[in-house]
Design a protein around this nucleic acid. Structure first.
Lengths: 248, 248
DNA sequence: TGATTAGTGCGCATTTGTGCGTATTTGCGT
DNA sequence: ACGCAAATACGCACAAATGCGCACTAATCA
């Protein structure tokens, strides 16, 4: 196996799992931990993954929760997320115009998206766009100012572009999901983009693990009833019976 | 077997497998590893594959890998390019609105750009945008469809966004530079973006090594006189005396 | 026909990648 | 705060891959 291929394999594993330990990688790729460590150094320098004590995590995860060790891998939601994304991806229909919001959950969704005829994906995240294009999807990027932390595009240009589009369906992430306070997120500008993009979408889906139910972030971008929520895991009883909540 | 056929065979194998080793190719094509290595060098120079230690990988796969590794491979024009970029970067003034075209030379330019007060950089390349944002620059991305090969944005959305902007200065790459045929590039859509972006820019600079002089690519995006060309190396005598050519 | 040139194979010095042992650092539980 | 176990960094040795010069062959052209 080419060293280059091994590097790509590591990136793939990290992206899919969210985080991996050094021994796991060494075992999977048939090389020693030393080599893995050297690889991780190189990949970290190239900003393709984030190296942490014990292994590596994907970049999105790394910047959300600053320098945590591999120990606290929140892979608890891992299986859940996989199921959520698989379910959500099945909702995309041929010949449709699909919006993909920025965020780590929707990034995961991209891995599951079908390569259907005539589907165009539109996103506000340059990172998501790269992944989509890499998978051979027809990809459109909103314009606007690039927020370094989230790789998301915001501002009047992003909003103006959205105003010209109408999507068949779309997928969003949400930091908070509550019946009264609605769907919430920490950033004002990103909330605007979410709000406008939802307004131009016929079928709106929020994909999220169960931990977000009952949480409230600073800025509201939609009412609870505005989207169908696809989730999995321990959903609070209060939300389980709601008819816009799908638990997989 | 013709050498040319062998080169094509190598490209095909690399494309299909994603990556191959030197011994594999030598075995399959009945030549020694030395010959394969020479072939890979040539194909890498022609950007048909990416040569890596131990073999070669397809460009798509390598793109991600090579991208963010800032220390690009040292080719012949390396010193020249450094000088060109340093000279060009010095032209950016505080409080200005600057356009950065996609391409490998302009990517190099980004590393030299000053972190001045009130400067906003606008680009049609998601890759360039990521680098700019990473360096802490205020960064704006044009919208539009993402071309996977070049990571550049094209189409009506990109052009519409450009129509709303007016830049103080801008930097472009060019595949061909000729007095009669003007500035040329291989891709029609990217040519459109170059053309419109130049139209909205006061001070236009093309940065290029000397090898592009006299070359002509399929699509013209500007007249020779439309931009100041910053270059270095063995510039043909015919162009040396022109007053819009700066040799560093 | 003889000279020139591009392409190929081979040997050798150098560079690069990998694994292992050891000293040091880090994180976690007491 | 402390100690222990795990993870890491560093140096070294070995193997693999590479680049380069040289010799040889085949094709081209005067």
């Amino acid at each position: 196996m080419l060293a280059e291929d091994r590097l790509n394999a590591i990136v793939t594993m990290v992206q899919q799992a969210g985080s991996v330990t050094v021994p796991e990688l060494a075992e999977a790729l048939g090389v020693t931990a030393s080599t893995i460590r050297r690889d991780l150094q190189a990949l970290d320098r190239a900003h393709r993954i984030a190296k942490v004590h014990g292994g590596a995590t994907s970049l999105e995860r790394a910047h959300v929760t600053r320098d945590l060790t591999i120990n606290e891998r929140s892979d608890l939601h891992n299986d859940d997320k996989e199921r959520i994304c698989a379910r959500a991806a099945a909702l995309v229909e041929p010949e449709s115009f699909v919006y993909i919001d920025s965020g780590s959950t929707t990034l995961r969704l991209i891995e599951h998206l079908p390569r259907l005829e005539g589907v165009t994906y539109v996103t506000d995240s340059v990172l998501h766009a790269q992944h989509l294009a890499l998978r051979g999807m027809r990809t459109v990027v909103l314009g606007g100012e690039l927020k370094p932390e989230t790789e998301a595009l915001v501002g009047p240009d992003a909003l103006a572009t959205l105003d010209r589009y109408n999507f068949n369906c779309g997928f969003w992430g949400s930091n908070g999901i509550a019946a009264e306070q609605g769907l919430t997120t920490p950033d004002i500008e990103e909330a605007q983009v979410k709000r406008v993009s939802m307004r131009h979408t016929a079928k709106r889906f929020v994909i999220s693990d169960a931990s977000k139910f009952g949480m409230v972030a600073p800025v509201k971008f939609a009412d609870f009833r505005d989207a169908t929520i696809i989730t999995a895991g321990e959903v609070p009883a209060k939300y389980q019976s709601m008819d816009n909540v799908i638990t997989v």
